[in-house]
């Protein structure tokens, strides 16, 4: 995908001229189209309905027969319990996701600029090797990674829990962030400006600071959202590298949901609480979120 998705609306509007004959179909096909679209909306929102309805039921009112009905009495008991269980890991997830978003995007900006505009011999090969790191199943590094972190912990005891996850996500996020910034700079920074700056005797850092950085905001937003979301939503690293006492919210949510006698109102409230931050990011900054999705497809 080209980087224009970062600066413009991620998905451009239709160019079909409204009202042009034959372009938007007859009233009949339009009605069918809307009916289908609405039906799919209902299907997609089905799990959300279950979450909301169940989370506001008092646990005593939960029974198989009324599973799909609206609550008779509203109760926030489930929300209270879920909040109590999840708030410490929520805070840890927040620290994790924010740190990862900031560090990864700085690394990504440095790499992306070089790969797009200040290449060195072999840069294309290095870039391709980076990209492969984006696709690997992390299972293939997990066993030695665990061992490596245990070793680190011997000399630096603070490398535990969330710190491990910050390190892991920052490093395994290097490929995608480098890609986002490289694609952005490849169109947003004209070569001519760079050449002019070089002729004026400006060094790389100077160019980076005074020419490139000031126009980098869109790519930063996309990369930060991407990394925030993937660090927040990650479970695999959390499961292998953290424990119930120092893990992020995905870990805690799985524990909350995993009991023998499931308390569905707290479980469903917990799902909503744990998803709220990424959903908010998506709702508020949706088009940048889509921009990140697009750049994930390499070209």
């Amino acid at each position: 995908m080209s980087s224009s998705v970062l600066t413009e609306e991620a998905i451009p509007a239709s160019t079909v001229q409204h009202g042009a004959p034959g372009t938007r179909g007859s009233a009949g096909t339009r009605a069918v189209r809307y009916a289908l679209l609405v039906a799919f909306v209902l299907l997609v929102l089905l799990p959300l309905y279950v979450l909301l309805v169940t989370s506001f039921k008092p646990s005593a009112d939960i029974s198989a027969d009324t599973a799909w009905s609206l609550p008779h009495r509203l109760s926030v008991e489930g929300w209270g319990h879920a909040w109590q269980t999840l708030s410490p890991p929520l805070l840890r997830s927040l620290i994790l996701a924010v740190s990862v978003a900031v560090i990864s995007s700085v690394l990504g900006a440095m790499n992306g600029f070089v790969f797009a505009r200040w290449t060195f011999p072999g840069a294309q090969v290095v870039f391709t090797l980076f990209l492969f790191g984006m696709f690997i199943p992390y299972q293939a590094v997990m066993i030695p990674l665990q061992a490596m972190f245990l070793q680190m912990q011997d000399t630096a005891p603070f490398v535990d829990g969330i710190v491990k996850l910050i390190i892991a996500h920052c490093i395994y996020g290097i490929p995608i962030c480098s890609l986002i910034f490289r694609n952005y700079y490849a169109t947003a920074v004209p070569r001519e400006i760079l050449e002019a700056a070089k002729v004026d005797g400006a060094g790389m850092l100077r160019v980076l600071r005074s020419v490139v950085l000031p126009i980098s905001a869109p790519a930063f937003v996309v990369a930060m959202i991407w990394q925030f979301t993937s660090a927040w939503n990650d479970f695999l690293f959390a499961l292998f590298l953290t424990t119930r006492n120092n893990g992020p919210v995905t870990y805690a949510l799985n524990e909350l949901a995993g009991g023998q006698n499931p308390d569905y109102s707290s479980i469903m409230a917990g799902v909503l609480i744990a998803s709220l931050p990424t959903l908010l990011v998506y709702i508020l900054l949706g088009r940048y979120f889509i921009g990140g999705l697009m750049s994930g497809s390499v070209k």
Binding site: V44, P47, V50, N233, T250, L253, N254, S275, Y282
Partner: peptide
């Protein structure tokens, strides 16, 4: 609106989605 609704599951973690879908 349609686009946002169709895309929103992407913003949710597999864990959160999995918990609901285990029930479903």
């Amino acid at each position: 609106v349609f686009r946002s609704v169709y895309l929103f599951p992407m913003a949710v973690s597999f864990i959160a989605a999995g918990v609901v879908w285990r029930w479903l």
